[in-house]
């Protein structure tokens, strides 16, 4: 059972990855090129040596195969993780149904894994960010992901504990509020990073970040919906033991 879910998750991750790659290639690359253009302009003005001048991997490869491989590995890995989350939730989410539970889990994972960390430490195009602080910024970003996931788990547990007494609607609101309070405290306490160089075009930064957000939205939406669809389909084809269709067939 777990194996079936895992394989399905990897397949859905691949599907999501292809969609993400297309959006990244069409909408994201122009912004990356624009940012690299700004970086080269700066380097030219300073007329000093710069890391992007000695090309180990050409821009063409970075923007095609490099982007493709990076996105596919990332999306497939998340698809695998998502499927195991789903395998754990399987039979533990009441009567929500295969598609609805996949959609809800994907939405919760999207918020915890990406939206909250993005709100505090948004994606940056090339030339934004001081190379000397890369270790610190990477630790903060991954730390924020961990905090956000812990807050989401706590909020879901709270919701489930309140479910019987408060009903689904109010319990969900309480869980959502608890999540927001926890991550708001974390955002307040975690150090703020602003390393946007002077003169970097504001519209370019905005566009880069909107596309980065859209990529994750595409990823989690396609992952959740395709996984739910395939699970629903396989349940219809192989009903669980004890289900009406199977008992009818046995009689």
């Amino acid at each position: 059972m777990a194996r079936t879910f895992l394989v399905r998750g990897l397949v859905c991750g691949l599907i999501a990855g292809i969609l993400v790659f297309l959006v990244a290639r069409i909408y994201g690359e122009p912004n990356v090129d624009g940012a690299i253009g700004f970086e080269e302009q700066l380097a030219h003005l300073a007329s000093g040596a710069h890391e992007h001048e000695e090309e180990i991997v050409s821009r063409d490869v970075q923007a095609s195969w490099g982007l493709f491989v990076g996105v596919m590995v990332y999306a497939t890995a998340l698809g695998g993780l998502f499927s195991l989350l789903y395998a754990y939730a399987w039979g533990r989410m009441g009567r929500l149904g295969a598609r609805m539970s996949a959609a809800l889990l994907a939405a919760a994972a999207f918020v915890a894994v990406y939206v909250v960390p993005f709100a505090k430490y948004p994606a940056n195009p090339p030339s934004v960010g001081n190379p000397d602080t890369i270790g610190f910024r990477t630790a903060l970003y991954f730390g924020m992901i961990v905090i956000s996931i812990v807050a989401m788990v706590a909020a879901v547990n709270l919701s489930r504990a309140l479910l019987r007494r408060w009903g689904a609607w109010n319990a969900a609101i309480a869980g959502g509020a608890a999540f927001l309070v926890l991550v708001a405290i974390a955002c307040y306490l975690m150090p703020t990073i602003n390393e946007v160089p002077d003169g970097f075009p504001a519209t370019l930064l905005w566009q880069f970040r909107t596309v980065a957000f859209a990529l994750q939205l595409v990823l989690w939406t396609s992952l959740g919906l395709s996984f739910g669809w395939l699970t629903e389909r396989s349940m219809a084809a192989h009903p669980a033991p004890g289900s009406p269709a199977l008992s009818a067939a046995r009689r």
């Binding site: 990244a24 994201g28 690359e29 990356v32 890391e51 090309e55 180990i56 991997v57 490869v61 970075q62 923007a63 195969w65 490099g66 982007l67 491989v69 990076g70 996105v71 590995v73 990332y74 990406y114 960390p117 993005f118 430490y121 948004p122 994606a123 940056n124 195009p125 090339p126 960010g129 190379p131 890369i134 270790g135 910024r137 990477t138 630790a139 970003y141 991954f142 880069f208 596309v211 980065a212 990529l215 994750q216």
Partner: peptide
């Protein structure tokens, strides 16, 4: 994160190859 914040393999090839994806997927790159 490889060959950015930390490095298991020497050089910068991995970083450079996945560079655009790393930026667009939201990871700090450099």
């Amino acid at each position: 994160a490889e060959q950015g914040a930390t490095s298991l393999i020497s050089g910068t090839w991995v970083h450079e190859f996945v560079h655009d994806g790393r930026h667009m997927l939201g990871f700090p790159c450099h």
